[in-house]
């Protein structure tokens, strides 16, 4: 496993970012912008499910409209997150927060594109049952964990 991270650290993308004074900060800033986009797309739907957001449109409608924005946020995060990782792969290997984030990220992506997506497409009524509220709570909680662990990579 370490050999893989060692090799990733030496890729030209990683090297270019490390050698540049401003590349890392700029990519990091775009990563934060994408985080805000993702946060908006997730919250608008989850708050709807919890009954404390938009109420006159069904969760299915809100989710359908938020889907492109969700994809935009995720693509933005991945396309900036991967280069950031490549520039310090070995540091990440020894960083607990990094592993927490990656495991959490895998789980929440799986959850979002299987269970949550299927649930939302069938949520065509204005009232939401408890299952929907639980779905929203899991989604918000997991994304929070991923974002918090992500921030903590920089502190540890």
């Amino acid at each position: 496993m370490f050999e893989v991270f060692d090799w990733l650290e030496m890729t030209w993308i990683g090297q270019t970012i490390r050698e540049s004074l401003w590349l890392f900060p700029v990519i990091e800033a775009v990563h934060l912008l994408a985080l805000a986009v993702l946060g908006g797309a997730v919250l608008i739907v989850d708050l709807r499910l919890l009954g404390v957001g938009i109420q006159t449109s069904t969760p299915a409608e809100v989710a359908q409209r938020a889907q492109p924005i969700l994809i935009l946020g995720i693509v933005g995060l991945l396309s900036t997150g991967i280069p950031l990782f490549l520039s310090e792969a070995i540091k990440c290997y020894y960083n607990q927060s990094f592993w927490v984030k990656m495991i959490g990220l895998s789980l929440i992506l799986l959850f979002t594109f299987t269970w949550r997506k299927r649930y939302l497409s069938s949520a065509t009524s204005l009232t939401v049952e408890n299952l929907g509220k639980m779905t929203a709570a899991v989604s918000m909680g997991m994304w929070f964990l991923v974002a918090a662990a992500g921030r903590w990579i920089g502190f540890s």
Binding site: G40, V42, L43, V62, A66
Partner: peptide, 26 residues
């Protein structure tokens, strides 16, 4: 930093609605 999701995230959704780019049927 994490409050970005709540503050700017929700604001983005409102702004996209105003731009006619999101939540257009609400």
């Amino acid at each position: 930093v994490l409050t970005l999701c709540l503050f700017v995230g929700t604001l983005i959704m409102v702004d996209l609605r105003l731009l006619g780019l999101g939540l257009v049927n609400t």
